[in-house]
């Protein structure tokens, strides 16, 4: 089974966000970058599929040179190969999806796994875009995946419940928390990753359709009032919610 996993290179979720001088992006000083949380889950699922069915897992990432770190981590977790689609611009989802889809078309895997959302831009768009560009089916926000003989059964999370979806290979799956618990790279894996290839390519990057005009921190909430420190404060709290906030 040929499997592609798309990984994005993002700030750690504990990052305190500061806006950069351009007013359109975050200040990267001192920020620790990681493989996006859901991409780790996608990669784990890919590794399990390979363990079960044999084959090859290729991790691919599109972006600046720093993305190679994330590819290296993917190799350490167990991916067989990595493909780095080098782009020094800041492409939008459409352009990233196009670059990924072009590579995937050429490599023609049986399944593509991505994260349900990249924890930086929170677009939740790439997976379904790539599928549409390839003319493939897809299931997004997947918490359970079963594949047998080309038939795919996946459970996806929806508001207040789950949908069971049937489709077929080749397809794109976007991974949600709950699908699996990603492994930690072993020392052996980390050592082995050093010798695994990262193939560099230059994708055709189409112009972005979405322009970021500005980025701001949300207006900081000022700490409110402590209504009290025991049960006697409850009537006042409820009065405030009813009369001042008017939310109940």
């Amino acid at each position: 089974m040929k499997i592609v996993v798309c990984v994005s290179h993002v700030p750690d979720s504990a990052t305190k966000v500061n806006i950069a001088g351009d007013g359109k992006s975050i200040d990267k000083t001192g920020v620790n970058f990681i493989i996006s949380t859901y991409d780790e889950i996608a990669l784990e699922e890919a590794l399990r599929l390979r363990e079960k069915n044999g084959g090859e897992v290729v991790a691919v990432s599109l972006g600046g040179d720093a993305h190679k770190e994330t590819l290296r981590k993917s190799l350490a977790m167990g991916a067989d190969k990595a493909v780095f689609l080098k782009s020094d611009t800041q492409p939008d989802s459409f352009a990233v999806a196009r670059g990924l889809a072009d590579f995937i078309k050429e490599y023609s895997p049986e399944i593509v796994l991505v994260g349900k959302q990249s924890i930086d831009t929170d677009n939740s768009a790439i997976g379904c875009m790539v599928a549409e560009m390839l003319g493939w089916p897809s299931v997004s926000v997947v918490v359970k995946l079963e594949i047998s003989g080309g038939k795919v059964t996946a459970e996806r999370e929806i508001e207040g419940g789950h949908e069971k979806v049937e489709t077929k290979l080749p397809c794109v799956i976007t991974a949600q928390k709950g699908l699996n618990d990603p492994r930690y790279p072993s020392l052996k894996g980390i050592m082995a990753a050093k010798n695994k290839p990262i193939e560099e390519r230059t994708p055709a990057v189409i112009p972005s359709k979405v322009e970021v005009l500005s980025m701001k921190k949300p207006s900081a909430k000022s700490a409110g009032k402590i209504v009290g420190s025991d049960v006697s404060a409850v009537p006042e709290l409820v009065r405030l919610l009813h009369e001042e906030a008017k939310v109940i």
Partner: peptide
């Protein structure tokens, strides 16, 4: 002009589609 949160709401961007 659309505002959309990024970084799980730690920042908000204004975007324009071309």
């Amino acid at each position: 002009i659309a505002s959309r949160p990024v970084y799980a709401g730690k920042a908000v961007t204004d975007v324009k589609i071309h």
